[in-house]
Each structure stands twice: as C-alpha cells, then as structure tokens.
Design a protein around this nucleic acid. Structure first.
Length: 279
DNA sequence: AATGCGTCCTGTCTGC
DNA sequence: TGCAGACAGGACGCAT
C-alpha cells in the first residue's frame, strides 16, 4: 500500500519525467474517481510535483493543482510513448505489460506523446483538481516542522494504542501500516501500548525510529510485497519488502531475539509484533 | 472533542 | 471441483 516512501519515490520519478510537459488531455474512465473540470488544465504546462503525506500533487502553470491519493491499490505508470505503452514488467492484477489495462481508471496524455496511467483495482483512489494542493491535516513526517516537540504533543493526552495514533494522518502524515509496524519494532514498543503510558525516553526512541524507518523505506524506493500493487512509474518494484522488520512477519522468528512474531488486530488493521522484545 | 464503527471495492483465500 | 462468504485495508461520514 502506498505510504510516504512509496509516494515520494513516485514523486521523484515524475519530477524527473513530466515537469515542463504540457497536458494534452485527460481520459476519465471511472467518473467517480475524478473531481473537477479537466478542461481547466488542458494545454497547461506542469511546473512541479509536490507531496504531502500520502497525497501526490501535480502543479500547473495556471496555479491549478491536480492532487491524487492512491489509497490501497493505486498505481501511477508512465510511458514515454502512448503508441508503444509497453512496460518492462507485468503489471500486477492487470496481468499484462501493456497499458491501458482493465484496472486503468484515468489517463493523462502529454503533448510529446508521453502518458500517465492511473490504475486502481479497488477504485478507492481519486484525483482532484483544485486551486490548492490537497494535503493531510497532520504535519508530514519528513517536514522540518515534524520536530520531537511536535511529535510529543501529537501523541499526548490520549489513551488510544500508539500504533493507531502514529497512523492518524490528522496528527502526523505519511505513516501507514507497514512503516508503523516496523517503527514500533525498531523502538521495542508494543503496538497496543496506550499513548499516555509512554515514557519520555520511549517517545524519543520512537520518534527516531519513525524517521529511520521512513528513510529506510525511501532508500529502497518503497515496498512491493507479493500481495501488493505498488510499482514505480516505469513498472519496476521497490525492495523494502526484503527488509521488513515486523510487517507480515507473523510466524517467523524475530530478527532481534528469535521469538516467533505474532499478529493481532488494532483499529481494524493487521498488526505484527514480537511478544518478547516489544514492551 | 474524542472515539469507534460502517462504508467503499474487488481479487484471493478459506471452508463446506 | 464449485461456490459462497470472509477478508484486507486508508480515509471519510456518521453515531455515540
């Protein structure tokens, strides 16, 4: 599922490949996933690609912003030639390396014949055209405003489980299920711990662990596990799935203490932890 | 205000 | 083997 490292990896790819291009037209194949009038950006040049939390935004020269959220199963694919949209890898669930595919919902065509396919198996994702970029309420965890002070305040005064709180996009933006599980493992904190029971020392370690985990995800260009749909725009995979610490590790030995990892449910989501070294 | 649950959607997995 | 039902999961809307 695309979280901060995945969306940032896509952002960097698009930044190098579509900035400066002019949008020639938008094909909306799934009406409910597009908000706004695409005519307003037709013929307009792209000047930047932005990101806030898990939201990716294409900035146009006329101060309009096309924001997109990939939710659970969104993919952004880029081909330099719409007449030969063949990718080097098979696209998961589309079961072909040729686009558009059966999960393609929106297509952005550029004036040099290059093209973006927005695929989404589950149709949870969206694109919104607006005069300002869409963004999460919480501070992006890679922003310089995401200080320890901010973090401490964001998790204070609640008895909810720490894992649920660090995934709350209104408090801090960018952390999803994969990186929440791994950051808590790294910090040796049990995911169900009530926020208001964390010591100052634990909060400091967790803050550091969140940043380290997100940066590690970024280093490997995100996670494309077997059952996931995330790809870079050229159809290549991320490799953070080869470095999971806790996510989906239930039944395997803890990488620190060899205790068998467990799975539980928190806030309706799969949660993975070491019952021995996460307190 | 804060919390928790149902909803959206579809491929895959499980159990009979 | 076939089929129905459960399940996964980010964020939003609504009820409490």
């Amino acid at each position: 599922m695309p979280e901060l490292p995945e969306v940032e990896s896509i952002r960097m790819y698009l930044s190098a490949n579509i900035v400066g291009k002019t949008l020639q037209g938008v094909e909306i194949l799934e009406k409910k996933m597009f908000f706004g009038d695409p005519k307003k950006i037709t013929g307009k040049k792209i000047i930047a690609i932005l990101r806030s939390g898990k939201v990716l935004t294409i900035q146009f020269e006329n101060k309009l912003y096309l924001s997109t959220h990939l939710k659970l199963s969104g993919q952004i694919l880029y081909s330099p030639d719409k007449n030969k949209p063949i990718f080097k890898n098979t696209i998961p669930r589309a079961n072909t390396n040729k686009m558009p595919g059966k999960t393609t919902r929106i297509i952005l065509n550029f004036d040099d014949d290059s093209v973006i396919y927005f695929n989404d198996l589950r149709k949870f994702g969206w694109m919104k055209l607006s005069d300002k970029p869409a963004h999460a309420k919480g501070t992006d965890v890679l922003s310089k405003d995401f200080t320890f002070k901010y973090f401490e305040k964001a998790i204070a005064k609640t008895a909810r489980p720490i894992k649920v709180v660090i995934m709350d996009q209104e408090r801090m933006a960018g952390i999803g299920n994969i990186y929440a599980n791994d950051a808590l493992w790294l910090a040796k904190i049990h995911p169900a711990r009530k926020c208001n029971t964390l010591t100052l020392q634990e909060k400091k370690i967790l803050y550091r662990s969140i940043l380290d985990t997100i940066k590690e995800g970024l280093k490997y260009k995100g996670s494309s596990a077997h059952d996931e749909l995330y790809l870079l725009p050229d159809s290549s995979k991320g490799s953070y799935q080869n470095h999971f610490k806790a996510y989906h590790q239930h039944g395997t030995p803890c990488k620190r203490c060899k205790t068998i990892m467990k799975r539980m449910e928190l806030g309706g989501r799969g949660t993975f932890f070491c019952p021995h070294c996460q307190k």
